[in-house]
Design a protein around this nucleic acid. Structure first.
Lengths: 162, 162
DNA sequence: TCAATAGTTAGTGGTGCGCAAATCATTTGT
DNA sequence: ACAAATGATTTGCGCACCACTAACTATTGA
């Protein structure tokens, strides 16, 4: 075998992510519309539930979007009473953004509505695989491994939700 | 424990996918630009490498976009000589779209360029986890488990690529 | 021959988003 | 105390992506 001509597939998951995210987002839009939400809102709410109480700049950072557009996005969410902007006590220029109770509730509803979509798009994966996928994505998004507490306290059998 | 109040996080991975795909796509754009490619092209090329020789309608289906926009996308790719449109022998109305050698080469180059980006965005995952992630996404995208041949014939050690 | 199908082209319009500029409140450095 | 920097907000511009429509061609199949 002289100088093997690179048979390493050299696969990257950027395109795959793009592809799946698109398919998911398209279906999601229709299911989310009745709730008055669009995919972008879901992303924001999800991030806020995870790392609530962050400044808008911080949000702009994690959402990787321009600060000025964050304002608009938050305006929409605040208009629906899903988030709250409080002034930071330490630095009164900053806004501390947080999910309201209504926001958390609406987010849950949306996630329930998305269950169907997920089933359609990720039909190729069994529940176990979807869970691993979730863990991996979560870890990738936060930069740190998912705290196992939440996952482990889930001895399969209490699927009360939805 | 009377009627446990839904402590199942009810997490969905749509928003997570959106989030990560976005982060990835943003960084990818800058790395891809020198190659004359945009993220959308990468998705198309990747799909074509996987299921080459499909009609444009089929492509429209898997890419989940309008047929008329597929035309434009393919025009760009064909203009660069990365894909080829041949008339189908059985039904001469149909176009059989396939990756050219140049296309495969360019795709590899792009994937190499994307390696850096992937490292930046998925810093939270070790190589093993990224591989599982890839397998899962691939399976989700194609609907069927990944054929293990390609993966297993990879006894870690021939990283000639890049 | 006629209806349906695959592709192409052009035009319209909406959405998402980056970017720049101007404003206001607040903090910080000198 | 004053100036400079910072966080948030608003407005307006412009581009990219994409769905949708309509009109046209080539081809197939009943």
């Amino acid at each position: 075998m002289p100088a093997a001509p690179v048979n390493q597939p050299e696969h990257r998951l950027g395109p795959l992510l793009d592809h799946l995210a698109r398919r998911m987002r398209l279906r999601a839009e229709t299911v989310l519309a009745p709730l008055g939400l669009r995919p972008r809102h879901l992303v924001a709410l999800t991030v806020l539930r995870a790392q609530g109480g962050s400044s808008q700049q911080a949000l702009a950072g994690t959402l990787a979007m321009d600060g000025t557009n964050i304002v608009g996005l938050l305006n929409e969410l605040e208009g629906e009473g899903l988030i709250e902007r409080r002034r930071s006590p330490e630095d009164r220029r900053r806004h501390v953004v947080e999910l309201t109770d209504a926001g958390a509730r609406r987010l849950s509803e949306a996630e329930c509505a998305l269950a169907t979509v997920e089933g359609e798009v990720l039909g190729g994966l069994d529940p176990g695989q979807r869970e691993t996928l979730y863990q991996l994505l979560q870890q990738a998004a936060t930069g740190t491994p998912v705290c196992c507490a939440e996952t482990l306290e889930n001895p399969p059998g209490d699927a009360e939700a939805c």
